[in-house]
Simulated assay, not measured.
Amino acid sequence: MGLQRKSKNLVLTKSEYEIFCLIKAGMLGSCTHLMNENERDELIKTGGVKGEKFPYALTFSSAKNDQILQQVQIGQVLDLYCEKKLVGQIKVESKFKNDKSLNNIFSSNTCSLEDLGEICIGGEFELFESKIEQSKQEFLHIKKTLNARSITAIVSSFDPLHRGHERIFRWTIDKADLVVVFLIESYEENGLDFELKHKFVQSFIQQYIPKERVFVFPLKDIAIFHAHLNPKLEGIIAKSLNCTKIVVGQNHTGLGMFFDNNIPRTMLDEFAKDYGIEVVVLPEFVFCEKCKVAVSIKSCPHGSHHHIKFNTTSLKTLLRLGIIPPPVFMRREISFIILAHLFPNRFKHMQKLYNDLFATQGIIEERKDEEFYAQLLKLYQITYMV
């Protein structure tokens, strides 16, 4: 990219920068640049560009950068900054008025028109570092090593990971050569930290399922997947990795599920035809008091009055109060990791407390908070005095 006529800088939020990374890595379709005005207009008329459908315009506008965009000239190269760090450059090849009625990938969750910029720019750009691209290359290497042909995608925040999620994992692995798990940000106000979620998801995969057949693709700091408002975006990133299936739950927000002559339909049906990817809608999983196991509401013969739901909001409430959720909802190991993160250094004189309460076989070792929770739960499960 030529560096002539460089002028001012564009300051990006973390989410905007990560969207740039998604575009450049080809994770949002074959367009790896910011669209120009003609491409945007084609999207408005046909719902896509060059025969490829897409729900959002890949054009950049920003209220906080609007003054700079007003002044920029065609052919100028702008530096891209994120968190005071130079992250890339863009050559402005097109400049045009923003159509605020059109969904823009950088403002897909913006409700107020006042937060949208007046000017859009298009053009080629380069990024000096991209974790998205790194993850993509790691995935492609694993795919090649396994010679995977049947690849299934799961998109979830796992906030937190519960027994219902486990059923989805196992069902998916049974029917695929390789599973890619797109880990997205939490959208609730009391959502768990992304790095914490990444840690316990990886821990579960390492311990309880064939780890060589599951790849976790982190989508940190990206707001466009919040609340699953547009499942088409999830299908698009899955297709970008040549996934053959994408698995969603019937309670997936934005799925728009309905029945036509007793046949379940969703807003993804048309998308599946256009992109050549199979969409699998799984029923809701619950714990049945009669079956004594996690089941789907479709396969269980007992009524809802016997079903205990995996309510993520309630589980997080327990955890934030420092209470270990019953193992019927979540694996103990997951709870221990979360509690140790939420309440660091919770116990004073941990070693003495541990030695006083639990059998140690005379061996004195430094204990972690996770080990303390594990031993404490074992004592709770001793019932001979009841």
Score class of each variant (00 low, 15 high):
N109H: 10
N65W: 00
S62D: 12
C111H: 08
K136W: 05
K53C: 06
N98H: 04
T59R: 12
E52T: 08
G29K: 14
E52G: 02
G47V: 03
E93L: 01
L34G: 06
K97N: 05
E114V: 02
A57Q: 14
E114D: 01
Y17E: 06
E126V: 11
E37A: 02
I90M: 06
N98E: 01
E52Q: 12
E37P: 00
F20K: 10
N36W: 02
I121T: 06
H141N: 09
V92W: 09
V87K: 09
G51A: 07
K53H: 08
S30L: 15
E83C: 13
L86D: 07
E114I: 03
Q134V: 11
F106L: 05
S30G: 11
K97A: 05
E18Q: 08
I105A: 07
K64H: 06
Q73S: 09
K24N: 15
K131P: 03
V49D: 09
Q71T: 11
K131T: 15
A57H: 11
A25R: 15
N38D: 15
I105S: 06
S112Y: 01
E138S: 15
D115F: 03
D99Y: 14
N98I: 01
E126G: 07
D41S: 10
Q134H: 10
V72E: 06
V72P: 00
Q71V: 06
G117N: 00
E124I: 05
D115I: 04
G117I: 00
N147P: 01
E118H: 00
L116D: 03
T46Y: 12
K45H: 10
N38S: 13
E129H: 04
I68C: 02
A148C: 12
E42V: 08
L69R: 12
Q73R: 14
G51I: 10
G29M: 14
K91M: 09
K91P: 00
K14I: 04
P55G: 15
I19V: 09
L58G: 00
G48F: 08
K143V: 00
S112H: 02
G51Q: 11
L69C: 04
Y81A: 13
E16A: 14
Q76K: 08
F128V: 12
I68M: 04
S107N: 10
K97I: 09
L22Q: 10
F125W: 02
C31L: 12
M35A: 07
E114H: 00
L43S: 09
S130V: 11
S61I: 01
T46I: 13
I68K: 07
K136N: 03
E83G: 13
C21V: 05
Y56R: 10
K95E: 02
D79S: 14
D41A: 10
I132Y: 05
Y17G: 07
Q70V: 03
K24A: 13
C21E: 13
K131F: 10
D99V: 13
E124S: 07
S130A: 15
V87N: 04
A57T: 12
V92F: 09
D79V: 07
